[in-house]
Design a protein around this nucleic acid. Sequence first.
DNA 1: GAGTAGTTTAGAATATTTCTAAATTATTGA
DNA 2: TCAATAATTTAGAAATATTCTAAACTACTC
Lengths: 146, 146
Amino acid sequence: MAKTQSSDEMGTLSSKDLETVIRGADLRPTRQRLALANLLFAKGNRHITAEILHTEALDAGVKISLATIYNNLHQFTDAGLLREVVVDASKSYFDTNTLPHHHFFYDEEQRLEDIPDGQIRVENIPDIPEGYNISEVGVIVRLSRS
Amino acid sequence: MAKTQSSDEMGTLSSKDLETVIRGADLRPTRQRLALANLLFAKGNRHITAEILHTEALDAGVKISLATIYNNLHQFTDAGLLREVVVDASKSYFDTNTLPHHHFFYDEEQRLEDIPDGQIRVENIPDIPEGYNISEVGVIVRLSRS
DNA sequence: GAGTAGTTTAGAATATTTCTAAATTATTGA
DNA sequence: TCAATAATTTAGAAATATTCTAAACTACTC
Ligand SMILES: [Mn+2]
Ligand SMILES: [Mn+2]
Ligand SMILES: [Zn+2]
Ligand SMILES: [Zn+2]
């Protein structure tokens, strides 16, 4: 079950399943890594910064350093469990939804939100230069209070 | 003539015209500011970082500090002569094309390029929450060497 | 359990950007 | 033209996010 779940639907994984996911990524299920996996994957999609994840971990009583937060965010990203979304010049967001999809970004709140898949379509992407391939097509719809 | 040109077509402005543009933005045509305007607007569209613009200025023999580069990039942006594009987590790009348009981003070269306007269409943007308005719709097509 | 490889960590280092406060320059208008 | 004023530039310090280093710790293997 856990093996075939894509990362945009890991919303109901038990700690047991998370350990399986972590081992599947060739990583050891340490106390810190399991705690982060829980915060990230145990309840629906998230778009989160390193600093906020750190605060959440500390609030949950998990003793963990910021360096470990960064290490794990990158390891999860390399393993395809997360993806990095660049919307803000000053910090990176990590997204638990690794399927292709687009985003709303709420300027004032600095908050990222998925646009339900299938909603937006990008048409007429021009030919790309010889020797290149498209690695991602990302749409960001920026919203401000009106 | 210069007065009505939009910033995506300032490719042929003389120094005289640039001074007019600068004064029109309520800024003083200082040596440094004119030099930067020349580098930015005198030859077609550009997507440039502060650091690279600084290097170009120094290479052109213009004595200018990095703080002044940042000051002017932000002043030009506030005046609507530039716009900031966020594609890379580690640095900001400033775009001389201020009309709505989309981008290719060449991952390896860290280079931004305009997608000719009218090419890409974004369809089916979902309803946005009450109290918000769309400030920008940006598409980034990331390209990597294949 | 010993060995080893992976992990965590504090703290230092880096990189980009912004800030501060003082010196310089452009503008205004008497 | 010149003095007064306001804008601009600048060096250097500071802020921020992120990465690196190297040592301590922990998980896994046999
Ligand atoms: Mn990264
Ligand atoms: Mn800025
Ligand atoms: Zn997302
Ligand atoms: Zn552009």
